[in-house]
Design a protein around this nucleic acid. Sequence first.
DNA 1: CGCAATCTTGAGGAGAGTCAAGATGCGTGG
DNA 2: CCACGCATCTTGACTCTCCTCAAGATTGCG
Lengths: 251, 251
Amino acid sequence: MHARSTAPLTGMPCSHCTLRRRAAFRCNTAEEIAFIQSLKVSEIAAAAHQAIVPQGDRSQHLYTLLSGWAFRYVILPDGRRQILNFLLPGDLLGLQARLFDQTDHGIEALTDVVLCVFARERFWDIYQGHPRLAFDVTWLGAREESLVDDGLLSAGRRTAAERLAAMLLQLHRRADSVGLVRDGGVELPLTQAHLADALGLSAVHVNRTIQAMRRARLIDIGGGVMRMLDPKAMRVLARAVAPALEPRPLL
Amino acid sequence: MHARSTAPLTGMPCSHCTLRRRAAFRCNTAEEIAFIQSLKVSEIAAAAHQAIVPQGDRSQHLYTLLSGWAFRYVILPDGRRQILNFLLPGDLLGLQARLFDQTDHGIEALTDVVLCVFARERFWDIYQGHPRLAFDVTWLGAREESLVDDGLLSAGRRTAAERLAAMLLQLHRRADSVGLVRDGGVELPLTQAHLADALGLSAVHVNRTIQAMRRARLIDIGGGVMRMLDPKAMRVLARAVAPALEPRPLL
DNA sequence: CGCAATCTTGAGGAGAGTCAAGATGCGTGG
DNA sequence: CCACGCATCTTGACTCTCCTCAAGATTGCG
């Protein structure tokens, strides 16, 4: 729980970034990679539970999450928290914070994370000189919105079991796309309280819903690991389709 | 209720667009406006209740809403509907639909609307030749996401009264910024069923909540017109801050 | 080994949903 | 100009999902 402070790291050249090798990500030209490299200020490690972008802060940077999990959230004055979405490796952080003067949401590390830090003042250069990459930024923003759209659909119109199914399917799929699934199991670093805050439920009710799913042999979850026992039934429950996975951009 | 079919209109040159004159929008250079004009294919009118982008369709175009109200929504297989956000004049439509191969949401006209249609195949030209406008597209996408974020906060963690207050404040503020508020009153073309689907509530409960607000002299709503009687109390209720309104881009 | 966070279970309650019926308003056509 | 019909709004009664409170079990870590 004790957060070690954020520390700059040497980091690895973008051209050797292991994320970039995954099929989930669109290939960049050598020239694009060199440009991305030139934007990169450093790598930063943050410990689990540490604030990456505190709520209400003006974010100084854009980040790409290189490893670990994080989440975007809002906290109301009386302490109620809503998790807006979870962030996995390859996701771009701080886009809204960069565009609007002040963000109304915060970003917190769920596990120890490593972030690729991009120079704030050079954000504009992407648009100036690299239209393809600028397009990618827009694309990543639109993708994030579609995740939030789905969360809103859940919170507004799905039952507790449906919400949970939709969320677990989404996380499983996203984790899979970045190689975080090994023989069917994902390391899920979420507490039930996190799920509750993401789904708009109480922690107690999330617990009961999970147990019902365990009894129904839909999932096997616990000890920080989740296994999908019956993905098809889960999709039926969530009324979700398995979306086609086209390669997505990576900065 | 009977939808007249979508009809192309002559339209007015972008340089004379009345929207563009509003303080709410960022000024463009003459050159930018000429470029935007060159993207413009036509203007299209759609009747209230007509689908602008049907759910599941691959959208052919990007639109700017010139007049009228619309909304983005998802419908689950069993008919439950979630409204993701409302669209007012100046808003960009179809961005996600353009970026992903297929959209999972639809867009429907709430009133009769007029849309500015941009050539799909020239979307890329914005990024190629007009970095400033490309940046604006990203900005508009991020702004829409922040609206959805707020909706998710509401559906997940606010009570019915708080949700309604937050939504009515947002709509009032947005309508005001495009000149739709006259001596305190906005024309709100929403039924209570629309509000229910946007807030994740039942129509009956929205009704009761509205009536409580009327009795408390917070708002005066009915007959398609809303008046904020006590904006400060509404903001306290919604736990919302009045956000600074910086000029936003318009395509 | 012991504390703290997390998970689990039970009991009772409340916010919001559903169903149903009636009221109101409005556009259309006779 | 009025009557009809439909959509919307309103109200009541009852129900149910999910919440809150509270206590105990489990886990993990220092």
